[in-house]
Simulated scan of single mutants.
Amino acid sequence: MTVFTESPLRPDRQEHVDHVPLGLSRSSETVYRAMLGSPRFRLSELAECLGYDVERLAEVVEELRLEGMVADSADESEAVRAVEPCLALRALAARRLCATRGIDPVPRPEAVERLINLREQRRSEREFESAGLDELAAVVERLVAHADREVVMLVPESERTSCEFSRLIPEWASRRGLTVRSVWRADVIRSAARRAHGAWLGRQGFEVRVVRSVPLRAVLVDDAVAVLGDDEEVRVLRGTRQVTEVRRIAAELWNSASPVRSGSTSDRGAEVAGSRHATVLRLLAEGLTDDGIARRTGVSVRTVRNDVASAMSRLDSRSRFQAGVRAARLGLF
């Protein structure tokens, strides 16, 4: 097992996070780094590797799950997997940075970059499998982390799913100003949990449609890359002809499908605020003054100053410009 850590693994009851580079408690960071060493783990296996008791480990894993760092395995019952750090840590940073309450630390850009680079190195060395729904999720998470415009998901079933019903991807997309469109097979909506997820997506401003049959499991990113997968193979298509065919299928399904009603009005206020924070940080990096940022964002100078002060504090920056640069390194805009 590859362990993504720079220090010995040991249980640590001290949960001080003020100086933890990834913004996690020491035990949470230890567990997350260890989980990156394998496509999935049962808790008993992971506890044996780390020397934790299973009950204590379950608590830490649940903390990581709440932060969007861990997800259930789609390939093995009662197993869990680490969400790709290029998405999980950047989403965590965005959430912490834009939070109006709480003092949880924002992950440090240099620590995030080191772990992402190490992860990419390990994947390039083919230490990971190339089949299964967990691998499909990993590939999609890495692509979505760098998406610029749109994510389209084709969902052929409800029981065994990859990342189609994750909230992390839509939350990240919303903060980045991306569009998310989903086409589900009609019987997926019979599940109360799936209906609730569809309603939640609608409240975020993302549309879900249902159609009688969806012939393939696929995710399109920016109309440029298509990821297809099942139990036996995960394929990443980048060639124009192949991607065009998947786009054609997706367009035909979308145009023939029926919208799923969200059941309530949009509640994207927090996401709009998060988008404003990202815009403020981008303009800081460009060197704009408070007055200039206020004019560009349509808010008061006082609001801009509050946003800037909060960003400088949470990003541990000595200047406005440094705050913008650090936010850029985290991929927040």
Rank of each mutant, 00 (worst) to 15 (best):
V3K: 04
E6G: 05
L22G: 06
L22M: 11
G23R: 00
S27P: 00
T30N: 02
Y32Q: 08
Y32C: 05
Y32N: 10
R33Q: 15
L36C: 09
S44Y: 12
A47F: 07
V54F: 07
E55P: 06
R56I: 14
A58Q: 15
V60G: 10
E67K: 07
M69A: 06
S77C: 11
A82V: 03
E84K: 00
C86K: 02
A94L: 02
A94E: 04
A99Y: 06
P107Q: 08
A111G: 07
V112T: 12
E113F: 12
E120S: 15
R122A: 15
E127D: 13
G132W: 03
A145V: 09
M153V: 12
E157I: 05
S162Q: 00
F165V: 09
F165T: 06
S166L: 07
L178N: 03
I189F: 13
A196L: 15
W200T: 07
Q204I: 04
E207K: 04
R209G: 14
R209L: 11
V210Q: 04
V210T: 14
S213D: 14
V219L: 08
V219E: 04
L228K: 10
D231V: 03
G239L: 06
E245V: 12
V246C: 05
E252G: 02
N255A: 04
N255W: 03
R261W: 14
S266A: 01
G269H: 08
L283H: 08
L284F: 06
E286C: 01
L288T: 03
D290E: 14
G292E: 12
R296H: 05
V299D: 15
R305K: 09
R305G: 15
N306P: 07
S310M: 13
R320W: 05
R320G: 14
G324P: 02
V325W: 01
V325K: 00
A327K: 01
A328G: 09
